[in-house]
Design a protein around this nucleic acid. Structure first.
Lengths: 157, 157
DNA sequence: CAGTATCCCAAGCGATACTG
DNA sequence: CAGTATCGCTTGGGATACTG
């Protein structure tokens, strides 16, 4: 990372990774707008229905419709019919494996926001399913050993 | 998380966390637009100067100016003067501790994008500073023990 | 309930030009 | 280099109404 204490002037055009080659940039292009992240957040919370999302987020129907389409096209959500006993057929938007994997960046973002923006007790925590132990997003080596953020750096290429 | 295999219909209005109480929502409101995430990405890569960012990202000056202002107002960046020997004074945008902490969500996003969108070898990796060992974003308990995403869930309140 | 269709308007993008 | 100023224009947001 670039830290305040080692931040010299950069080299112009030194961005080592072209936008098209950068997963972060690709992700930002898919998710980077006012509503998309929040729609995915709904899905992570288990909200799967159009009107539920609309009510929760308070966004216009047309916008929600558009975002759901984008996300299904991208493979983050699938639209799936279902029928509750005695009810007529409905459908729901559920996360694909690709969508489920978005939980990690979004959890990290949530914990960042709780720490640096809200600064009060988090409204939602992530816990281990079986034990209820609180979980934090972090970096780890392939053997699982955790590594502090400040001991990490980019390696290009 | 909400998984495909346990995703029943949700309860209307069941979103347990109000947008104003959710760090993820707050973060999304700050970072959720076309360019802001990419500007932070530049800063993480160590690009600190206005024109470097403009060149790398190819966005209009006015937009970049606006984003840098937003991010400094939010406390993610600070604008700092410096002078190289024999040069006139310049300034640079460097990450605050709050900004540095954004590395984790963005790394997670990058790894997600590399895995699910680009699907080729990542252009940039995160490695441990001393050893060069590759790092991955993940969840861990407070004792550092890693936990799989699928063994995690939200706990509200 | 789950959308699509329409319309209007504001925000924001992108280009260009200008200033310290 | 590092911005601010201006401007035309498109995008997309928000309200409302309509359909299966």
């Amino acid at each position: 990372m670039a830290y305040s204490d080692d931040a010299g002037p950069d080299k112009l055009g030194a961005t080592k990774v072209d936008l098209g080659d950068c997963g972060m940039a690709q992700a930002a292009m898919l998710l980077g707008d006012r509503w998309t992240l929040l729609v995915v957040r709904e899905a992570l919370y288990g909200v799967t229905r159009f009107d539920s999302m609309k009510t929760d987020l308070g966004l216009p129907r047309s916008v929600l419709s558009n975002r759901l389409k984008r996300l299904t096209d991208a493979g983050v959500l699938i639209k799936r019919p279902y029928r509750e006993p005695g009810q007529r057929a409905r459908h729901q938007y559920v996360l694909t494996p690709m969508g489920v994997d978005l939980a990690l960046p979004l959890i990290a973002l949530m914990q960042w926001g709780d720490k640096h923006i809200r600064k009060t007790a988090p409204a939602a925590a992530i816990v281990e399913r079986r034990t209820g132990a609180p979980l934090m997003a972090g970096l780890a080596k392939s053997d699982g050993a955790p590594v502090e953020l400040r001991n990490a750096q980019f390696r290009i290429g």
